[in-house]
Amino acid sequence: MKRRAAGRTLPVLTVCAAILVLWYLAAIGMNWATETDKLVRAGDYSVTDAIAATWSARRPVLPAPHQIVAELWKTTVDVKPTSPRSLLFHAWVTLSSTLLGFVFGSILGILIAVGILFSRTLDKALMPWVVISQTIPILAIAPMIIVVLNSIGVQGLLPKAFISTYLSFFPVTVGMVKGLRAPDRMLTDLMHTYSASPLQTLMKLRFPASLPFLFTGMKVGVAAALVGAIVGELPTGAVAGLGARLLAGSYYGQTIQIWSALVMASLMAAVLVWLVGLCEKAALKRQGARP
């Protein structure tokens, strides 16, 4: 018991349980007024009835966790994944543009970082802009990219992937530049004594040394790519994707639908970051890092 308390499992589970309890209590509080109103109109009611009603309202202000789970189950397991009523369908739409954008963004980020490493001009002229662009709310540009590309006939996956690319390449570039410069003077001098060419130094020294930085950047990048894909789905008017589910839910007051889309997006973000973490562990293990 004592050993487990020193670990992380028990504290995390406790905090999760506390959040659940608070959530149920909050659901009672926030749904109380509307639900008791209905019960009063229907006749007399007891407190237990009212509490049960707040946890099973059709359009609650705050849905109880089990309602969200039930909605998730209903829209993922009971419906065919190809139907537009299935949450898996929408999740896939978002996931595909997230992944496409993330892959493009990572490649672009790595290329720019290598360019910055080799060219003094790029380092002095471009790097400050990469840093400044981190401080700009780039997401504001998303609706315009979607609508403008739509007006010249580009629609569907690509515009969203474009936004995801845009959002995910900054963290990768910044991390990668830091990583490529991580090897100290001694190591670069050693490569020099081997009379290694710049390309060889890059491939055999700088690139392996930059991996931890690259993966840290990619973890931030993949989360940013998902946010970009979701926001990119807003302006096209709720066609498909998790962002569209959020928007449609907010139009029609379907709170349970909003929450289930939100939970799905969160699950996806957690899994994506976890997958990048797995790749990181595998790559660093091959380099001989000890856990």
Binding site: V61, L139, K219, A223, L226, V227, I230, V231, L242, L246, L247, G249, S250, G253, T255, I258, W259, A261, L262, A265, S266, A269, A270, V273
Partner: peptide, 16 residues
């Protein structure tokens, strides 16, 4: 974990 989640998604709920 929460820092990595797409929290912007709570926007429609907050507007409601």
């Amino acid at each position: 974990l929460v820092s990595a989640l797409p929290i912007v998604g709570v926007a429609p709920i907050m507007v409601m």
